[in-house]
């Protein structure tokens, strides 16, 4: 079974770094989008197993998008990948329902581990 991942970041480079960090030994279908509004719109039709969500974005930020996704699906799996690593931000975001809070830039080992960890639970 292919794992579906939605990658949300306004930076093309950030999306590139994340895509290149995804594990190669599991089947993954991914989609990219550039802000929280696009993410919310794509979420329902794509129905991803996992969302990698940036926080600081134009149009709609990740925090608002996270809240809307959790309203649509309280079991949504959202991993935050952000440069805003303040303790208060972490506490606020985790309270909204994010499963993980990962600091940028993405690291192949960490991204590989967290994606495979989730893939195991989806089997």
């Amino acid at each position: 079974m292919k794992m579906k991942i939605l990658i949300v970041d306004d930076s093309k480079s950030a999306r590139f770094f994340l895509i290149k960090s995804l594990p190669k030994d599991i089947e993954i279908e991914y989609k990219e989008c550039e802000n929280g509004l696009e993410c919310v719109n794509i979420y329902q039709e794509f129905a991803p197993d996992l969302v990698f969500l940036d926080l600081t974005m134009p149009v709609m930020g990740g925090e608002e998008a996270l809240a809307k996704i959790m309203q649509m699906n309280k079991n949504a799996v959202v991993y935050i990948l952000t440069a805003d690593i303040q303790r208060t931000t972490y506490e606020r975001i985790m309270a909204l329902g994010a499963r993980k809070f990962i600091k940028k830039p993405p690291n192949k080992e960490i991204i590989g581990f967290v994606v495979k960890e989730l893939a195991d639970t989806l089997k």
């Binding site: 930076s11 480079s13 600081t56 952000t82 440069a83 805003d84 690593i85 940028k104 830039p105």
Partner: peptide
């Protein structure tokens, strides 16, 4: 993106 990470 790097400045964003650094400023964060």
């Amino acid at each position: 993106e790097l400045m964003n990470i650094a400023f964060g």
